[in-house]
């Protein structure tokens, strides 16, 4: 698999179809994001563990908007790029996507239901993770028990903002969570449930299922499960998967005629 990615990267760079390719590299015995340019050795190329490519691509485009970029993108990266483009954060016209399907093991580790990009260049489509024990358990809980579950989970929160920082779709220039009038500043754990509910609402039409919020949580809070529930609910209401269709606006900004609420029509 990795050889095929290597070949695609070399082709893009050598042919001049891309000025640089954003991928991962193994350096100092660790895996990191890396911007490959023509002539770079691709021996270091790596695929896993994944890093979120969207925000890095955004920072590169901001520094040099006319650069012809390519990016090795997994399903979640692919959806993040679409969603970022839709929201004016990046310009996909200048970007070529090398679509990489995740392996079954990788999908399991991420608890990912859709472990493949829209167009697969490398790898084979495998089934996603439909549900987990925790998701089933949470669905079965009463409201009071759920509240206790999340209260206990978020009692560990040290307000690192890692979930927000790592999220490819947290794109507000001024973050309401840092505004003392909304979330009292300087408190650990941050006030419950406002901090986490506001974030959940903001991500309800944006979450692309990358799991980076949980991956970056130093307190092991099961955010992937929280957002899996939210994505399902959003989809049930609006038949909408963030990052799936570049031409479709978020139902939260359209009228009822354009995008009706599903429960009603059913």
């Amino acid at each position: 698999m990795i050889d095929k990615v290597r070949q695609l990267v070399v082709d893009l760079l050598d042919s001049g179809r891309a000025d640089a390719v954003l991928a991962l590299a193994n350096v100092h015995a660790n895996v990191q994001p890396y911007l490959y340019k023509k002539g770079d050795s691709l021996d270091s190329l790596a695929l896993w563990p994944k890093y979120s490519m969207g925000p890095i691509l955004k920072s590169i485009q901001a520094a040099q908007p006319d650069m012809k970029l390519a990016v090795v993108a997994r399903g979640c990266d692919d959806r993040a790029l679409v969603e970022l483009a839709k929201r004016g954060q990046i310009d996909l016209n200048n970007v070529q996507i090398i679509g990489l399907a995740c392996t079954a093991d990788e999908a399991t580790e991420c608890e990912c239901a859709n472990p493949y990009p829209a167009n697969i260049d490398v790898g084979n489509k495998v089934d996603g993770v439909a549900s987990t024990d925790l998701l089933a358990e949470l669905k079965g809980k009463s409201y009071d028990d759920r509240l206790i579950f999340w209260k206990q989970a978020f009692d560990k929160c040290i307000k690192c903002y890692g979930c927000r920082n790592a999220c490819p779709l947290c794109i507000c220039e001024e973050c309401i969570l840092e505004d003392d009038s909304w979330v009292k500043a300087g408190e650990i754990p941050p006030p419950f449930p406002i901090f986490h509910l506001i974030r959940a609402y903001h991500l309800s039409d944006k979450c692309v299922e990358c799991g980076e919020c949980q991956n970056s949580c130093p307190m092991d809070i099961p955010l992937t499960s929280l957002y899996a529930l939210i994505r399902n609910e959003f989809n049930e209401l609006f038949d909408y998967i963030p990052g799936a269709e570049i031409d479709r606006k978020s139902p939260l900004v359209t009228s009822l005629e354009e995008d009706p609420i599903r429960e009603e029509t059913a």
Binding site: K156, I158, C160, I188, P218, M219, D220
Partner: peptide, 13 residues
Amino acid sequence: TENHPLIANRILR
């Protein structure tokens, strides 16, 4: 948790 968060992480695990 405030002063050595990543050690707190192992303790809570």
